[in-house]
């Protein structure tokens, strides 16, 4: 069931002298089973955009459609939409509050008003999805490692069985190992569990490696939207926005300026390797 933004505009202090437009005429469609990354410089409207997906913010104008139905329409069950779209904020471990991990994960489904057996079943499944078994149930969420805390927090959102999982810089502050494990896990939620993933990130290397599609936001408008290969072809544009391209792409671009005929639109290590080897054959 696709989630569509249609000409979404959003402004702080709308209608006053202090009006500040944050989103301008944004139209996008997100699909299940697709890993979409949103990139953009600080202040480009990324976090405002993702808060719209979960109805934490309501557009000043425009439509938000879930499965073709206008969410902003009178009588639409907004609470139900929040169950369909799960939002994980930056440093989500700071929102844990129950003394035991399992109870914390149950918080979401309990709020959905499900019967207890179902609450428990959904929480259990969510914990399994993030790779935490029963032995974690009664541990305190304040006494486990940073990476584990973050898994618990993500399980807390997954327990509501959303079709879409929206994450803001989920790997920030983790060590390389923890970061890789978490991103692999998120990729798995997309490929195996079929969730639609919408991920805000600052790391070009990460999005090049993990995403199916990249949306570039700048000053509240969508500047680029396409596969990583398509997007990272626009190096000059990205650099102008204060963004960059993956490191390996940078190497190809460097070779190009030195007069070598290479394809500068490659982003993976394997394909870049092949392209460079071509020069030597």
């Amino acid at each position: 069931m696709p989630l569509t933004l249609k000409n979404i505009n959003y402004a702080y202090n709308a209608g006053t002298a202090l009006e500040k437009k944050v989103l301008k005429d944004v139209s996008l469609t997100f699909r299940e089973g697709e890993f979409t990354a949103i990139i953009g410089p600080t202040g480009s409207g990324k976090s405002t955009l993702i808060q719209h997906l979960d109805l934490l913010l309501t557009a000043t104008s425009g439509e938000l459609l879930f499965n073709g139905e206008n969410v902003y329409a009178e009588g639409y069950d907004r609470k139900a939409l929040r169950s369909r779209v799960g939002l994980v904020f930056q440093y989500p471990e700071y929102q844990l509050f129950e003394p035991e991990i399992f109870t914390d994960v149950c918080f979401g489904p309990k709020n959905q008003g499900l019967p207890e057996a179902e609450v428990h079943a959904n929480a259990r499944e969510a914990m399994k999805l993030v790779g935490l078994d029963e032995s974690y149930d009664t541990l305190s969420p304040f006494e486990i490692s940073g990476g584990q805390k973050r898994r618990v927090a993500i399980a807390g959102v997954l327990a509501m069985k959303p079709d879409f999982l929206v994450l803001d810089e989920p790997a920030a502050g983790l060590d390389p190992q923890g970061k890789k494990e978490l991103l692999d896990l998120i990729r798995g939620l997309c490929t195996q569990a079929g969730k639609g993933i919408i991920l805000v990130s600052h790391s070009m290397d990460d999005v090049a490696e993990y995403a199916d599609r990249i949306i570039v936001l700048k000053d509240g408008t969508v500047r680029l939207d396409g596969t990583p290969h398509e997007v990272f072809r626009h190096r000059e544009e990205l650099v102008q926005m204060g963004l960059s391209v993956p490191k390996v792409t940078e190497v190809l671009c460097g070779l190009k300026t030195r007069g070598f005929d290479v394809d500068t639109g490659l982003i993976g290590i394997a394909e870049t390797k092949e392209e460079i080897l071509r020069l030597f054959r």
Binding site: L56, F107, G108, K110, G156, V157, M160
Partner: peptide, 13 residues
Amino acid sequence: DKIMKAQSARGAD
């Protein structure tokens, strides 16, 4: 404000 939003996203009222 942020925590309130995060918990609202988990269905808190």
